[in-house]
Design a protein around this nucleic acid. Structure first.
Lengths: 346, 346
DNA sequence: CTGTTAGCGCATTCAA
DNA sequence: TTGAATGCGCTAACAG
């Protein structure tokens, strides 16, 4: 009961026909004006009249009808598994930078910890997007969807044969981290994985643990420790796993993401463990918070903005129909050594 | 030159007509089946045939045409100023929880630090959304837009007369923080604001500084210290302001957001300032990282998930056309006192 | 139960 | 330079 509100009045919508009538021209003329295609096609007088009428009536183009007519919406859809990870902010920033005003970016966010499902992708396809950017898919369902719209995969190692892919240099990152940890003298490693078994995460684990074990390290049980990408969930997972890990001599815990590493730090604090004296912690992402956490976190940078930029650039090329020479790009990250890793004291 | 790719082939799109022909039925029947309205209207045999054809041909509904025909898209648009603030993740989670599968959530993200502009909102309107959720607007342009679609404002203090609004209890939050800081003995306060002069931020500052000054505190120059909501930007802003603040006896810096407080912590660390002995830091948001920062951050919780839930619930009610009794909700937050605030040593 | 038909609002022919 | 006509693919009302 707030009479002062201007409530939504269905049926009140202003159409091009109404504008045309108001301006004394035809719909075609209105269309030309709103689409900025009137040069040399519409008289200045009519352009002015149409613009006045648009302003006066408060007309906005119906993009739905427009898209139907044109056969495609100027929409690029990003399907991402878990926007709660601040890592995405960087990716999104990179994408938006490239798209500018040419395309609207639509985010289709799956639920926490879930992978993009076929359903999500189908639903996105319904919008007739100009292109699809899919983050960290792991299933072959992407195959079903090919051919419907230009598609670029982001952080999808092992799927380069399916569609153009922008990847993170997991192997080189893992290598950097391994060198660092082995040099410090660690030999027994716990690993906190992400629950979204997407390929990028299994690969982070495999690449790193593979290297560590090949160098003489070992991974004690439990080996299936995982959580969603949230501080508290990761903390819980760590607290549950720690007694066994501790018994088996773990001196270093590596996490799939920085956020989870924060959870481990939190858990370690609760247990009274000193970092890095009693336990070293390292992870992937290098979020900007990692330099001010307590202790500051040793982390491998995964260049988010670059990923976004490259994916968007690639998508634009596909839309334009250009033959794209490079269909697989990899961005390598750097290792940032901070306070959370040190020599094991035992 | 990757021949194995299935490239996007324009014109290949499968339509309901093709499905109908393939299944030996009419388009109307296909429509009924895909929209789950076939009970008692289509024979089981035909339902099966249609479903088979859909699977075989890989048909997906054209939501654009569907929306045009129905007169409305099942789309709810969230216009947000700065998705890089992890605070949004909570809001989005709350919204998605309520919308479930009934509506698609479209995020229209403005550029870093920018407010939702009229342009953004106009562009969103073009999609014929079922509802609009607008985060932290500050301009009266919202007035121009009223009546086009159901609209709910989030974190928009002072705009309750424009549209239904879901707010944070800034006053009570400021009050809690003031009590805490005055009790500790602080009297001279620096304030690091957000650049997006949206009403929620100016209010955070006014409410808090107003109370502090009324209680005998003071705000030294510079008073216009602000940054975007990013760690490094905030760090820079702090480093620039600090010499003067220091000279004028500032013992406590308050930030508009946790992220910015992390920047202050980072800057203080660079300067060799001990927190809280030399400087206390507090802020608004209470992100989950604030409990593991170094030092852990004293912060006022602003309940993000509740905001999202309430906004979505309200939007659904507006869409259904229900007369909504409560058009203005406020969610109060709690104060979390941690290590970053203490008695001033001078 | 099923098919036919008439728009939805716009962009784009094609004539004038 | 302009306007009338056609169709984008689908849904809803209707007639069968």
């Amino acid at each position: 009961m707030n009479p002062e509100y201007v409530r939504h009045k269905p049926g009140t919508r202003v159409t091009a026909t109404m504008v045309a009538k108001h301006a004394g021209v035809s719909v075609a003329t209105v269309s030309l004006v709103v689409n900025d295609k009137f040069r040399g096609r519409v008289s200045p007088a009519n352009v002015a009249k149409v613009r006045e009428s648009i302003a006066e009536l408060g007309y906005v183009v119906d993009r739905v009808a427009s898209s139907l007519s044109k056969g495609s919406s100027d929409l690029i859809i990003l399907i991402a598994p878990d926007i709660s990870n601040p890592y995405f902010a960087g990716v999104i920033a990179g994408i938006k930078e490239v798209l500018a005003d040419r395309y609207q970016l639509l985010l289709s966010v799956t639920d926490g910890g879930e992978l993009p499902r076929a359903q999500e992708i189908k639903a996105s396809l319904e919008f007739r997007p100009s292109a699809l950017l899919i983050f960290a898919p792991n299933e072959s369902f992407v195959l079903d969807v090919r051919g419907h719209a230009p598609m670029v995969l982001i952080d999808a190692p092992g799927m380069e044969h399916v569609a153009p892919t922008i990847n993170i240099g997991i192997d080189s990152s893992a290598h950097l981290l391994r060198n660092h940890l082995m040099e410090l003298g660690h030999r027994s490693f716990g690993y906190l994985d992400s629950v979204t078994g997407s390929r990028t995460f299994t690969l982070r684990r495999e690449a790193l643990m593979g290297e560590l074990i090949a160098s003489g390290g070992r991974e004690p049980s439990p080996t299936d420790v995982q959580s969603v990408v949230e501080v508290d969930a990761a903390c819980q997972a760590f607290l549950t796993a720690w007694p066994q890990w501790d018994a088996e001599g773990v001196t270093c815990v590596i996490c799939a993401t920085d956020i989870q590493a924060y959870g481990v730090i939190k858990g370690a604090r609760e247990l009274g463990l000193r970092i890095p004296e009693d336990l070293s912690v390292a992870s992937f992402d290098n979020l900007s918070y990692s330099s001010i956490s307590s202790p500051a976190l040793t982390s491998v940078e995964l260049p988010s903005i670059d990923l976004g930029r490259a994916a968007a650039t690639h998508a634009l090329a596909l839309i334009e129909g250009d033959e794209v020479a490079v269909t697989h790009q990899v961005f390598a990250g750097e290792l940032y050594v901070r306070e959370s890793t040190g020599r094991p004291s035992r």
